[in-house]
Each structure stands twice: as structure tokens, then as C-alpha cells.
Write a protein that binds this DNA or RNA. Structure first.
Lengths: 217, 217
DNA sequence: AATAAAAACGAACGTTCGCTCGATTTATCC
DNA sequence: GGATAAATCGAGCGAACGTTCGTTTTTATT
């Protein structure tokens, strides 16, 4: 998986060039990363709306004015932060299925990919879950579509498995919903699993265990 | 189940009498309910910290000054809102187990109770989940303890079932964690299930189905 | 070393925030 | 129905907010 952070911030920079007043790519990428990491950290501690731009300025070491060369407003920063992770998540999830035909294998791979991805990008996943309701109409809709799309990937896999008589005849949509809830718990309650020393591999196996006992013949 | 809202607000009033400047119980209960309902509604739309007391004043129809006769500060309101639901949830969950001995029956009853409770008090459950991190140290700790206590109820039931050789030898703690994640999805993604016309009974049966296929012999 | 471009700076602006308090209205009691 | 208590009111306070902009510092080019 190509999860280079630098590539992600380069995309972000190119995509929002009009609103970013910084000219040099190298400078932009360095400080966008600085700002986004700090914003994710503070947002996950006290919520995005409680984070003041002075908090952010202190955490990044940039002045207020400097920050405003990278973001055009606090609202727009929220948008960009959401946008930043979403496209990558979908890309990676779909790519992970490439070349796999067996529904069992597909299901297990997607579960693993989702968990590893949310491990790698945990601050973003947590942020995305908690702050979606604060987005404006269009982006709020996009975020929900994205959530449903992930669910749909699971639905498709399950329905294929059912029609191939590899899985029991279950309600694929409800099953996918609950599966998604289990995957979400991994990044929403990360502190709990960390405290208990549960590793992502163990969690992944466990989710697959529960699901397969319900789904497989 | 005795879920009288009036009783709950009466308890709240008595418990916080020192900080509430209102003398007459009847008046206090009426307006506490008004304030809390409005605060839950606005908080669930835009987050507690984005809710201004002028928003709250507009929604309740009370003036700023009047509101401050019922709450001593915005922070304290947050505390009270959390406190308000927590004790009831624990009480109801424990009471629901009274007189039941069979682990299967206990498990299914607790699942159902939890789901019906989160149906009845959905705004509070959603609020509680989303705003816990904004609590101050002591109450944040209390909230987490409360969350773990609910999980522990499930762990206890499962371990009893395992030792009685009614359930498979599973990791009770992890299983309880995932079960909790499934129960939480019901109130966190309420819009999704509403859109799809999924009723609480159906959801409850489904969760029990999945769990029993994993747990029962 | 001089010049121009780019980036960073931070005080200041208007607005909104949580909160207070003296004035006013409503309810209660003899 | 007059007096006392209880509840409500809303303008006003200082602090903090997001945002701007004239200035200074750093970097790149000649």
C-alpha cells in the first residue's frame, strides 16, 4: 500500500492551490503536515470547534498570519481535513480487493485492510467520525455517502458469497452494518484496546471469527 | 421499568439543590426538563461547545438570567447532563437482571434492555458518547468507569455461561467489547436504521442471532 | 552584495462568548 | 389586596474568538 504522507499532502496542496497562498511546494507540504497533525491532535482532545486558532498556532509554532497563508478559514480547514483522508481510504479499500475472487478471502482481506488502515490513520478516523456532523451540507452528504459506500463493499461481497452458496442466507445489509460497527470500535475505543494490550492482528482475527461463525457453512 | 422523566428531573433537582436558585420543585422540574431537552437537541446538532447559551435561551424561551437560576455555569450544565442519564442507565440494566438465572436468558434480556433504553433515551446516549471527552478529569473518569461497568455486566454473564458449559470457551472480554460496539451503533447511527425502516425489535433479534451463533453450542 | 520574491509575524478589528446584576414581573400568603 | 418572596428579564461586562494587514524577516536570484 502506498501510504506516503508526503504524497497525500502534495495532492492536498495541488488540489487547493487557489486558496493556499504559499508558492513553494516543499514549504507548503512541510507546514501543511505540521498544521494538519496538530489540528488532528487538538481536535481529538477537545473537539474541533473548541480548538482555537491560537491553540493551533501555539502547537505548530507558526504565527496566526503564517497559518492563514495555508488555510483560508477555520471552516475550510475542517473541510480539507475531511477531504484529506477520505479519498485515500476509498482508494486503498478498493485496491485491496484487486485480483481476489473468493468471497471468503475478499471479506477477510477487506476487514484486515480496514483495520490496518484505521490503525495507521487512527487520528484521522477518530476525527472523521466525531466531526462529521459539523460539516456543511455538501460535504456532510459526501461524508455519509463515503460511509455508506464502505458498507456497500461489504454488502456486495456477502451477496456474492450467498449467491455462490458459500455464505448462509443472511440479511447482508444488516450484517455489514454490524461488521462496520465492530471495525469502528477499533479506532473509536483505541484507548481501551491499548490498555488491554490487544493488538490489531488479534482484533482482526476475532472479528473474522465472530463473523465467520455466523456466515460460513 | 420506571422511566418517568419527572422522577429523573426531581432527583436531579434534589441532588443539585445548592447550585439551583429556584425554590419551588414544580417550577424547577418543568424548566429543567425544558433546558435539558433543548440542550440535548442543540448539542446533538452542532456539539455542546458550539451551542451558545443564547442558542439555548432562544430554544427554551427563557432569558439568560432565568437560565442561570437553573444552572450555575455551562460546564456544570454539561456535568449535570451526563450525570442525569448515567445513574438511570446503570440502575435499569442491573434491575433487568433481577430474578433471572439462565445465562442465555440473562444475555438476551440485557441486550434487549440496553437497546430499548437507548431507544427511549436516544438523544442522551448520543450526547453522552459524543461529549464525554469534554468532561473534566473526575467526571471523565466516572463516564469511562460507567462504560466499562456495562461491559463488565456482559463479561460476567458470559463467564458464568462458559463455566456452566452453556457457552463456548470464548474470550469473554473481547466478545463483550464487540457486543457493546453493536449496541452502540443503534443509537449512534440512528438515522441510518430509521431510513431503512429497521425496528428496534428486528435489530435486537439480529444482534442476538449473531452472538448466539458464536456463543451457543 | 544588492534586489526582488516569498514567508512569517503579531497587534488590532469587530463580533460573539459566558456570565452578572439591578430592575421588573409573577406568584404566594395572611 | 397589600406585602413579601420567587422567578424572569435583558442590557452590559471583560475575555476570547476568527480574521486581517502593514510590517519585518528569510530565502532565492542576479
Amino acid at each position: 500500500m502506498d501510504l506516503s504522507e508526503e504524497d497525500m499532502y502534495r495532492d492536498l496542496f495541488v488540489q487547493n492551490r487557489e486558496e493556499i497562498q504559499i508558492k513553494k511546494e516543499k514549504t507548503a507540504i512541510k507546514n501543511l503536515a505540521l498544521i494538519f497533525d496538530a489540528a488532528l491532535f487538538i481536535s481529538n482532545e477537545k473537539g474541533f470547534s473548541s480548538m482555537s486558532l491560537r491553540d493551533l498556532s501555539a502547537k505548530t509554532g507558526l504565527s496566526m498570519g503564517a497559518m492563514y497563508s495555508y488555510i483560508s478559514s477555520k471552516d475550510k480547514l475542517l473541510d480539507m481535513m475531511h477531504q484529506y483522508g477520505r479519498s485515500m481510504v476509498l482508494k486503498v479499500l478498493i485496491e485491496s480487493l484487486d485480483g481476489i475472487d473468493d468471497p471468503k478471502k475478499q471479506l477477510e482481506t477487506t476487514i484486515q485492510t480496514h483495520l490496518y488502515l484505521s490503525e495507521f490513520m487512527q487520528p484521522w478516523f477518530y476525527f472523521s467520525y466525531m466531526e462529521t456532523k459539523n460539516l456543511h451540507k455538501d460535504l456532510h452528504k459526501k461524508a455519509i455517502e463515503s460511509e455508506l459506500f464502505t458498507e456497500q463493499i461489504f454488502v456486495d461481497i456477502m451477496e456474492k458469497g450467498i449467491s455462490k452458496q458459500i455464505f448462509h442466507r443472511v440479511d447482508a445489509r444488516l450484517t455489514a452494518s454490524l461488521l462496520k460497527a465492530m471495525l469502528q470500535d477499533w479506532y473509536l475505543k483505541r484507548w481501551k484496546y491499548k490498555d488491554r494490550g490487544v493488538k490489531v492482528e488479534e482484533y482482526s482475527d476475532f472479528v473474522i471469527d465472530i463473523l465467520s461463525s455466523y456466515l460460513y457453512f
